[in-house]
């Protein structure tokens, strides 16, 4: 009897040790891989004091870079949200031939290198590309200009809203929507009053990811923009140039600004989401 209880206690101790070990290993990994670099950049960006930060933000090319990044982000978020919701509804609610293919296509931008996306855009819209004559005839500059930069960023950011919303819709099922129909609600009323409130957290998270991705995009934008200082240079492209020109300090400051924006946005949404689920739960 006592032997059994002793071994049960030993078992429990062993289980606790295992857990402590797993936890330590995991925390160490996260600390070294994720937190240390974050700490590093905060330290080096602010090393020279806030005066240097102010100085950096007063430079006109830095301001223009942020301005451009903001425009690209806003347009990208609007487009990917709108299309994301529609595609997610179709993928989650309709059955059709080739659905698997569409679902794989949606994921494609996650797997394909942004560099390749940029190249594709150059080949399509650049000199000798399929669509070049069409836009050239109308005097619209696509490559080395804002339109292509927005286009590739949208392409790369498309999966996020869809991937966040589809599982929520699937789990939700259709019954609430059908109930709304039987009560006389139109499709639009049903979406606005029943579906949207139910998917709002997943949707917001997807939008945040989409926004984070669009301000951080560099590979594709580098290729299509030509990276013209003060013209087609986004914040990330500015960092690229600053590094090349040995202005590390400014690069760190701009990089930290971008990171802070995304991190605050994402953490904010996660916190709201947790609070909401706690209230509901």
């Amino acid at each position: 009897m006592s032997a059994i209880s002793t071994s049960a206690r030993a078992d429990r101790r062993k289980a606790r040790l295992w857990r402590a070990l797993m936890l330590s290993v995991a925390l160490l990994y996260v600390a070294v891989l994720l937190l240390a670099p974050l700490g590093g950049i905060i330290y080096y960006a602010l090393k020279e004091g806030l005066g240097e930060v102010g100085h950096t933000f007063r430079q006109s090319d830095v301001r223009h870079a942020f301005y451009l990044t903001a425009i690209i982000m806003v347009v990208t978020v609007i487009v990917t949200t709108f299309f994301g919701i529609i595609v997610a509804l179709v993928l989650a609610r309709d059955r059709f031939v080739g659905k698997r293919l569409v679902s794989a296509l949606v994921d494609l931008p996650l797997a394909v290198s942004p560099v390749i996306v940029g190249l594709m855009a150059v080949l399509l819209f650049g000199r000798g590309g399929w669509f070049e004559p069409f836009f050239a005839a109308r005097g619209i500059q696509v490559i080395f200009a804002l339109p292509s930069m927005i286009l590739v960023t949208i392409f790369i950011s498309i999966p996020f809203v869809i991937r966040e919303v589809v599982p929520v819709l699937q789990e939700l099922g259709m019954e609430e929507e059908q109930a709304a129909w039987t009560l006389g609600a139109s499709r639009l009323q049903t979406f606005r009053r029943v579906t949207l409130p139910n998917i709002r957290w997943g949707l917001l998270y997807g939008i945040a990811l989409s926004a984070a991705r669009s301000i951080g995009e560099v590979g594709a934008v580098l290729i299509v923009s030509g990276s013209l200082q003060g013209q087609t240079e986004t914040a990330t492209l500015y960092i690229l140039r600053a590094f090349d020109q040995y202005q590390e300090q400014q690069a760190y400051i701009v990089a930290l600004t971008l990171a802070s924006f995304s991190i605050v946005m994402l953490i904010g949404i996660e916190t709201l989401k947790r609070r909401a689920s706690r209230e509901a739960g």
């Binding site: 974050l38 945040a208 960092i239 990171a259 991190i263 994402l266 953490i267």
Partner: peptide, 12 residues
Amino acid sequence: FAVPTLVAGVML
């Protein structure tokens, strides 16, 4: 997911 990849490189 939040940190731009270029910024991740800068951090390192």
